[in-house]
Design a protein around this nucleic acid. Sequence first.
RNA 1: GCCCGGAUGGCGGAAUUGGCAGACGCGCUGGACUCAAAAUCCAGUUUCCUUUAAAGAAGUGUGGGUUCGACCCCCACUCCGGGCACCA
Length: 783
Amino acid sequence: MLYPIGWDAFGLPTENYAVKTGRHPAEVTKENVATFRRQLKSVGVSYDFEREVDTTDPKYFRWTQWIWLQLFNRGLAYVEEKPVWWCPALGTVLANEEVIDGLSEVGKHPVERRPLRQWVLRITAYADRLLADLKGLDWPDSTKRMQEAWIGRSEGSEVEFDLADLPGERLKIFTTRVDTIFGVTYMVIAPEHALVPRLTTPAQKAAVDAYIKAAASKSDLERTELAKDKTGVFTGSYAINPANGQKIPVWIADYVLASYGTGAIMAVPAHDERDYAFAKKYDLPTPRVIAPLDPATPEPELPFCIYGRMVNSGKFDGLASAEGKTQLDAHFSAQGRGKGTVQFKLRDWLFSRQRYWGEPFPIVWVNEADYRTALATAKHLPVPEQAVTCVINGETRYALPLPESALPLQLPVVKSYQPTGTGESPLASMPEWLEIWYQPATGASVPASQPKPGDDWVRGRRETNTMPQWAGSCWYYLRYLDPKNDQALASKEAQAYWGVPDLYVGGAEHAVLHLLYARFWHKVLFDIGAVPTNEPFTKLFHQGIILGEDGEKMSKSRGNVANPDDIIKSYGTDTLRLYLMFLGPLEAMKPWNPRGIEGVHRFLQKIWRECVTEEGGVNPKISDTATDSPELEKLLHETIKKVGEDIENLRYNTSVSQMMIFVNALQKAPQVNRRTVLAFLQVLAPLAPHITEELWERLGQKASIMQAPWPQFDPAKLASDQVKIVFQINGKHRGDQLVPVGLTEAEAVKIAQESPKVAPHLAGKTIKRVIFVPGKILNIVVA
RNA sequence: GCCCGGAUGGCGGAAUUGGCAGACGCGCUGGACUCAAAAUCCAGUUUCCUUUAAAGAAGUGUGGGUUCGACCCCCACUCCGGGCACCA
């Protein structure tokens, strides 16, 4: 059994606190971890603190950086300009959650989308496997469905449209409904599309520029889903529909995203809701090219968005949609302007932050000549086949990785965590760390202000971006297996012995992002032979969270926090543990209710009194010779069974109820056998370890209760020869009676007819039908 | 807006997944013990009708449906929560 704990301690909240207080995030992290660790221990959680990990520990993030180098080496990391929230007033990049209604959360300043140089991970290369391998996982179906939708595999077609005003150029679009291509009345490209400048005519330039500026301030979410009101602007240019040769206008609209498909669509207003809304607004034609399959059906209202039969489509008329798609794909393929293809909604993963408190990238940016030299002198460097480049200050730079032997690359101590104002992280304000002479073979460096140390040294600039918090949390479950290993992220032996987590418990808020990112990393590690399995989390359970008394998430600013220290002080650890379990189902979000805690506290006190007298001796009702009543004995075995099953199924709340029922019966019993009490204490021990250990000892046991083998229930003791059967007339409850097990239907009907409660409802009626469920119910339908 | 959940007494929740709705606990009411209180114990506690009891009737967010029988399955809605790619 491996039951570990660790701290995912990089990230925004700590950094913001550091900015505010000027204290080093590492120092703050250390304090917070100490508090959490103390509280967890006081709750009596049996984590193995020997295996504790901390993602901000250089000994840990050395391996985070190592994994990242493997991704880099395999061509799964690249650099691109990506739009992020930029706040000119604060001079910093903001997270989505820090932007509220287009204003910064701090100071309420206006924000805009600005493209910045970012590291991106090619998770889309694994889209098919991430989708296909979901099938074998023992996860909640809802979570699997969410991941499926997120990956968003969609089969369709790519088609290239000639451009009337740019001879030789083509506009490539993606569509899932190529069968509607004869109904295209305009094209739409995303505001960020590369062809925008060349397609925009002088007459339209002012309008287009204004539109692009406005679109730049919206998030993708605002642009597509929330916006019922579609907006757009005409470029002034035209494309040619390759299906029928028609000249059609090219528009720019922000409901088309540059990040999905080709960033351009063919618009078929008659058969697409978004296109229809747009066409109505801008008065564009909506010709019908799909009719219902059944010709007898009256013409449906537009937009008609389901499959049907092609009409007004030249030689393709009459084909069903599916067949039409196949033929059109072949048709365009033969012309070299299209093909059937698959698109994913999943986008590559923006994997950098312009922040201080994260893992530094083990990358030095050098010029092309130095890059060639470095590769020649240091052949072991983990470089991709195709060099990763970017333009910094107008110069093309090459990404040169640190050798694995030089890891970890540590964060320099900075004077200020304040934003630089340029969009770069605070690391950019550390010239001694940033601008260096660098020896590629060893990873050694000296500040560039000093003389060049030798011939095999090159001039370099370190990467100022840091990794997002996901990085450390993507693989921590592997580090628990072998937390102190300095040769590998975990030894082969440890991995073979422990495998992957048997049960992964995590909140539903991680359903897509964390759980998808970690699966991606794990698959890459599998591909390079660093882990023996294809999937990290075979069985998954989402626990809920305890909300504040007001039903809102607990937060200091809201003042609705319940502190475990206070509860432990007044009621003790076992009461807190038991109450947390009794509060409701583990997976539910439930508010903290301090009043109910009295109930479980009384329950534990009652158990104490049943075992121990006021003077501290063993309660005289307990003896080795007492014979328990059959009822108490049966209840004990039912309790052992139910608690065992409930623990297996993570239904702790109902196991507490069952134990309460048992103790109520125990209390009423005049005599009780010691074995019965001991067995009960054992099933309670996992939830209330402290009090049960104490009572176990007071009842004369020498070894720890934790060492004793789990009690077994005897199925024979659970059997009953009597069972209650419910009588219904026309589905209405009219009485019940204890009857022998194995009663036949005829006998049951006879008993019902003789029952004083049931008989009146049968008087003068004809029995139409009898439904008999043995041992449960007899329903007589009368008329 | 899209994807995923949820809604049961005054409150937290239970119901073997289509077979007695409300287990268990909190709270409340009444009683016992006590000079008194605390603690503890006993009884009651979905709503309505009924003097009370017996006996009825209604009842699991709303409106329909399937079924001998629906908290559970289907359809349409309402409200609340999670996620929507830089909180993680």
